[in-house]
Nucleic acid binder design. Structure first.
Lengths: 100, 100, 100, 100
DNA sequence: CGGCCGTCTAAGGATC
DNA sequence: GATCCTTAGACGGCCG
């Protein structure tokens, strides 16, 4: 696929040659369809996982946990400890600057 | 604060007892850990899928497709059914607004 | 306006009398239009204010401030101190339960 | 940490000096305070507008209108222009995808 | 590296 | 009154 078959700078003057031309109704169209369908499939899976996560939070909630706090913990576990500290330091500086 | 696990509206059945109390270092802690780890695992999977999708777009791009256009197509394929419904809703609203 | 002129439980049997009937093409329609336009106008203003806020944050950023931290401060100033403490306490409990 | 005001990518000109340094209790603090107060003021106004909108809906309701339907109408009036554009975009995309 | 886009969170409204 | 859902705002990642 050396030719930029669908990029906007391609063949807009009507000089679509047979190679490209065949492609539109043939292999390239199939390729395009394949790409789109694979992406859509993966997005489906992503969505399913989001549902699973939601279910777990529902379960957590009915077990008496505070979902918001759990989210916070997960967020913190993702961050570098130094990041957390840095933010807090800055917050502190601003608060002092404001005399709070 | 005998049952730190629970939100303020806990005690539905009043059965917050020594079992639960012991929980901070025991079952409830395990439960909490389980919840967090399962969510983190699922988020990992989600992230992996996002990577796969990205790979497909990279492939598409090197095959000469316009990635932005493909994204738009996918978005529109997702939107269309809702648009149809929306039109019907619109019609309905106006009919009701006119008291027909 | 004694009549529930547009509520769903009104006059669905076609017995729209002349009073109501006139209203649809007259005063009630005008009233409806007025309501809609006033709301839309206020929403415009809201949107404008959102833009102004955004501008201030842009200014803050180019003055070297950390916008995210400023947001945090604003949020904290809005909250009851007891609320803040409560969240932090719960967070602490969970962290201890997890042995973090 | 001579210039707590600044984010880590500060020092664009290296002129972080005593002026700035004094700033925590002086100009920069004032600047920060100004930013925060202006934002808070604008948020107040936003909140007030939200209240006004709510009032209008209350009025509408007591005039016998169906508030939910009015909300929908407003939403749709907002959406329509974009939908028109969207259709044209769609047309364009397909034409491009087909290489026409 | 700044703007744009999509996702995710939090609040408000509708529903039962 | 509680829950669910929709919507607006915030946040982070991606692209140009």
């Amino acid at each position: 696929m050396l030719d930029g078959q669908f990029q906007e700078d391609s063949d807009e003057d009507g000089a679509v040659d047979t190679r490209t031309d065949a492609a539109v109704g043939g292999i390239a169209a199939d390729r395009l369809r394949s790409i789109i369908e694979r992406v859509e499939r993966l997005e489906e899976e992503r969505k399913a996982l989001a549902g699973d996560i939601k279910d777990i939070f529902t379960e957590a909630k009915s077990a008496g946990f505070d979902v918001k706090v759990i989210r916070q913990i997960i967020r913190l576990r993702k961050l570098e400890p130094s990041e957390v500290e840095e933010q807090e330091t800055l917050l502190d500086i601003y608060r002092r600057a404001l005399g709070i």
